[in-house]
Amino acid sequence: MTPLLQARDVSVSFGRTRALRGASLAIGAGEIVAISGPSGSGKSTLLHCLAGILVPDDGEIRYGETRLDELDEDSRTRLRREVFGIVFQFGGLVPELTAVENVAVSLMFGGLGRAEAAAAALDWLGRLGVDDCAPLRPGDLSGGQVQRVAMARALAHGPKVVFADEPTGALDSVAGEEVLGLLLGTARDHGTTVVLVTHDNRIAAYADREIVVRDGAVAASPVVTR
């Protein structure tokens, strides 16, 4: 299997803090992987590197055959827009836009006309069960609804990989599991790869595989003997 996403010896520092020190991993196409670890372990930074948001100080990031760490900002931006989808802990929706506009604006950045984008956005809100929230702004939505809209935004352009950074962190257990189930269900239906960052073991159990990050590096996968 050629991995879809690969990190090799990735290091990142913020000032004096070394967030990642030689992290390596490989994720196959269609896999649903949880990156877990205690807070401050560097898992979010690793996600940002894999998603082409951050360029590592050292090491390689590959998406297929493409070296993300060697691309310029414009190409990485295009890749993020066209091939990746991203969900954050707090939705990251634009507060002034309505739910449907939040999804549509992303599609418009991808080159779709406004009417088509709005129609596609509404369709995706429907699939995630929040089409009745379409004309509302994020401030008028519940946390679970905000996350569903954010997921519609991440999925609407048919990404190959969805990155989710603690997507249920701001939600209660039941709402969180519901929203996550929707995301992973949709991803499985479309064969989308999902990289899920979480510190919650029960959320990690939703993935097919767990990658543990500890002190800025990926812990070796143990061989389980039962």
Partner: peptide, 23 residues
């Protein structure tokens, strides 16, 4: 540490089964 990691992997494997069952 390795022992704990193995235990964690075993636990998580069981948790995945349970999650699959409940979903």
């Amino acid at each position: 540490r390795a022992a704990l990691d193995r235990q964690r992997a075993a636990h998580l494997e069981r948790m995945r089964e349970l999650t699959r069952a409940k979903t």
